[in-house]
Design a protein around this nucleic acid. Structure first.
Lengths: 213, 213
DNA sequence: CTAGAATTGTGAAAAGTTGCACGAATGGTT
DNA sequence: AACCATTCGTGCAACTTTTCACAATTCTAG
């Protein structure tokens, strides 16, 4: 317990939380590391060891009380409050994100949407008014927003990230297919569908595919 | 060289490919493991070791010829042909994916879009006609489509995945926040923004956030 | 109250991954 | 030609992550 907890462990906690919430919604009240592992495709020992970094949450013979464990994980991940987030870029992707129904239940609230297209500014997306990107720094600074979803065209991604950092943002989920340069202390997560798809084609049988090029 | 190449290595190749393509577009013709590593936040030794699983692509003193290495990586990842993909679910997310401009350049073509809403069937999304999900199995089987992007509501995700597998799909990129049960031989990649966001909140300073709940 | 099944938390071993450091090769410069 | 600065590919060592396996605890049921 304590010292430095590996990032790879932190990365699995949201998956545990998601699976536990799913079980809770089905009305189940307790579970075991074995059951959880089965659902997630992870060994039961790994789940037990991961959790043991933070305390002793289970009971021998019984397993884990689901609601209790959910509560603990929420605290560990700082999800016992609602995080306001900004969506930057109100194109197709920005709209999809703004309409995503999974944020509220899981600790986030879309507080701001920004775009640089005057046509879009003033429009309302899922109840949130689109603001011009020129107002972004002032808005986010004032409200101490810490997290942003970056959904702008690739060419604009780095400069927009720079603005976000100037605005005090310290966590960015970027959908642009480039590596952002950010100062230490700023976290970045990436989501690039093509990278995930290309990882799979390695294992696919190319001869079964209709050729081209 | 040869034997079994670790999956973690495969997962980095698309990132190398992306960075190399970026350099090529800027007009650069050669690069080094050091330069590439800097851009990606990866050690140069790791890049060299990863590539050495597949052959010797560099030259001492000079580094790598970018176009040559791109070509090699494309072959390794089976991107020397264009993969037809299906998008299932034509909601906000399905639309965003269908309009994504990065597929063509990087080895993929949106060949099919499916939805179960009669209102949407017949509509055209970025030049592709939306078909009813009832026709899905027949369409995909006939064309030997191997990859699908799953963008349906959570409740429908598992049953839709089952249909995809019945249709012969062997690689799924799922946007639903659940773990899919699939037979061996079927690959699944997941994309859940909230999981990535929750991973970051662990490191964020909760006291700086306006409270709630 | 006891026996047996279930399940945790964890130390130690095994497996996997990354980084170091160096010989060998290359190209540019004097 | 000789030297120097680069840079690769790689064996080995260091580090990280996962798995094993078991004592300890709990619950159930007769």
């Amino acid at each position: 317990m304590a010292t430095e907890i590996p990032d790879i462990v932190i990365g699995r906690l949201p998956l545990y939380l998601r699976a536990l919430t799913h079980l809770a919604e089905k009305g189940q009240t307790t579970t075991s590391s074995h059951e959880l592992g089965q659902r997630l495709g992870i060994s039961s020992a790994q789940i037990r060891k991961d959790l043991s970094h933070f305390g002793e949450f289970g009971k021998q013979g019984t397993g884990y009380h689901i609601n209790f464990l959910i509560d603990q994980l929420r605290h560990i991940l700082h999800l016992n409050l609602v995080w306001s987030i900004a969506i930057v870029g109100a194109g197709y992707l920005g709209h999809a994100l703004a309409h995503y129904q999974g944020f509220e239940q899981r600790g986030f609230r879309v507080a701001w949407v920004f775009d640089n297209d005057p046509q879009r500014v003033g429009e309302t997306v899922n109840g949130v008014e689109v603001r011009h990107i020129n107002d972004m720094i002032a808005c986010l600074r004032e409200e101490h927003v810490q997290m942003a979803l970056l959904a702008v065209p690739t060419e604009a991604a780095q400069e927009t990230a720079d603005m976000l950092i100037e605005a005090g943002i310290t966590a960015i989920l970027s959908y642009a297919p480039i590596n952002l340069k950010v100062p230490v202390g700023v976290q970045v997560q990436y989501s690039d569908p093509v990278v995930q798809m290309q990882r799979m084609t390695y294992y696919l049988n190319a001869t079964a595919q209709y050729p081209e090029t």
